[in-house]
Amino acid sequence: MKMSKIVRTQANFLYPFILIFGFYIIAHGHLTPGGGFQGGAVIATGIALIAVAYKYNDIKKWLKKTRLTATEGIGLLAFIITAICGFGTSFFYNWLANSGLLFGDRVPYGINPGYLNTGGVLPIMNLAVGIEVLGGLGVIIVYMLSYVKEVK
């Protein structure tokens, strides 16, 4: 299925903005509302926009199912490994918080402007879950598109 030229031009124009907005939500998950799941869903919406506007033969060169599945597996694996790294105290221990290392700055109590280099393992877990949701929801769209192409 291929939409009209108006829809395709709009999709080309909107796709990078949707991508940047999704990665913004993922990267600022520990400062503003949102997080991994919401940002991944927004990016998957961008993939769905391209998938609805174009034919499957046009997009299958750069939206491969194997790549999306690998992205999903890597995300889930990174999430579990980050949780296992806190085994010195307990599973899911926030071992990077207030440590001075990466994402390890201390947060002043109360209202503050929000510093990006804080949060401990939260930004890493946000990124992992975001990648996982992006791959999972994207591969469902691509699977459905490839099957619908064969029905017609």
Binding site: P33, Q38, A41, V42, T45, A48, L49, V52, L137
Partner: peptide, 17 residues
């Protein structure tokens, strides 16, 4: 944000496909 992303974006796309 989750509802706007999944409900309004993805579900509509899957229905249209």
């Amino acid at each position: 944000i989750a509802e706007a992303g999944i409900g309004a974006g993805l579900t509509t796309a899957i229905f249209i496909i």
